[in-house]
Design a protein around this nucleic acid. Structure first.
Lengths: 226, 226
DNA sequence: TTGATCAAACGTGTATACACGTTAGGATTC
DNA sequence: GAATCCTAACGTGTATACACGTTTGATCAA
């Protein structure tokens, strides 16, 4: 599908690799990102590392303080809630548009993605569910037929990844999530945009609300010393 | 307000300068951004220029093609409409939240900003109106009391600047815009979030719709040769 | 012992140098 | 005369070198 023959630029590859380490939690929020250290670790010079860090800083995953080095961005609980509120609104917009514009093919794809989530739920496999859930939501983004909106949604979704991931461990979360998905699919297929928007807004916001509880532990993780 | 003592990094300053040249139209969409040329023009080396371009590329104002140089991003008409749709939704969200959360002080500030627009309208000064309009909208962003949302709105607003600017030249646009502002202020102060959201959504979307007409001329500007 | 001051090491920010892909121009061939 | 191939110049991508601010450790004074 992605027929780009080669990234061809080290900066891009490094950007993805470092982002991977951030979202998987290998690099914790607040961790220093020493340019020389990273350069040595990846076997390249500082130049492409710097360029990768600048990109990640623009994306909000890294915080660069002048002359004082870069660190993995620490998102305080309050801001995290704000971000989830915006995410909820973006997804609501996607759902509203999707209800009006989704094609027959896309309906099939959406139902397939939904079905796949069911399998992961039944297998009680949070990691699988995490990925399949992401694919499910992307189907809705695409069905909005607004490419820019879809990009924004994907971008913010990525940024929230490390925090979202914890959610699925909550008891019964997968089952509740799946049943919410069902209602959303029904509303979209029925062409009821307002209902679909309202449902998915709640679906996302509940995660933000629950974070009010979880953030404490996250904060503990990111600042062990103090 | 912004108590940052000094940007201290050339990359940042160059980023702003180049962005300025893009949004003011000095650098037209599609224009090549030769690193050596820019470096010579600003009297610096290629390194900070590259870093500035990477930031601008992340922001979407510049398009970097591997090994083939950077150009000012060309936004095709279709995508521009998509961006205005998202902008409308972001502003609607700001207005909805603002109606619930705005403080007495912020109401005063909002009315002041609105009043300032009136002066520019009466003076029939589109350039002044352009800036005051921006300040007016920012008051609403801030009143949403969602810092992340406000940042996103400001960011997208900046990106749409070069295209938005043309709008005010349209006959009677300033008068219509001002009267729409009035209704929006009333709805927010009255605490009617849904009405405020609906009004501002229309206020923004009408710009996107009108662009369907204007884009032809924009396209002509950006690609004189063919 | 604790506090402040200073100096050296460290790391970022910028400049320069080099390598490779891209592109444009000219020569050659059909 | 037009198209293609080759070649050389150009510009990007990466590496290296250097300058300056920041930080840290030690020394000295109270």
């Amino acid at each position: 599908m992605d027929h780009a023959p080669a990234p061809l630029r080290l900066s891009e590859q490094l950007c993805e690799k470092i982002e991977e380490q951030i979202v998987t939690g290998l690099l914790r929020p607040g961790a220093r990102l020493d340019e020389q250290e990273l350069a040595a670790a990846f076997g390249v010079s500082r130049t492409p590392i710097r360029e990768a860090l600048i990109q990640l800083a623009s994306a909000g995953l890294v915080d660069m303080r002048p002359r004082r080095g870069a660190v993995v961005a620490e998102i305080e609980p309050h801001r995290l809630c704000e971000m989830f509120d915006v995410m909820a609104e973006l997804e609501a917009m996607c759902a509203r548009l999707a209800a009006r514009r989704i094609s027959e093919q896309e309906i099939v794809a959406l139902r397939d993605a939904h079905q796949a989530c069911e399998s992961a739920r039944d297998a009680d496999n949070p990691d699988a569910y995490y990925w399949l859930n992401e694919l499910f939501h992307r189907q809705i983004y695409m069905a909005s037929h607004n490419g820019f909106l879809a990009e924004q949604a994907i971008s913010l979704h990525r940024r929230l990844r490390p925090y979202r991931r914890l959610q699925l461990r909550v008891r019964n979360r997968m089952k509740v999530s799946y049943s919410e998905h069902q209602s959303i699919v029904d509303a979209i297929v029925a062409g009821d945009g307002e209902r679909a928007a309202e449902l998915i807004r709640g679906h996302i916001q509940v995660q933000g609300e629950r974070f009010t509880d979880l953030v404490a532990s996250v904060r503990q993780l990111s600042s062990p010393a103090a």
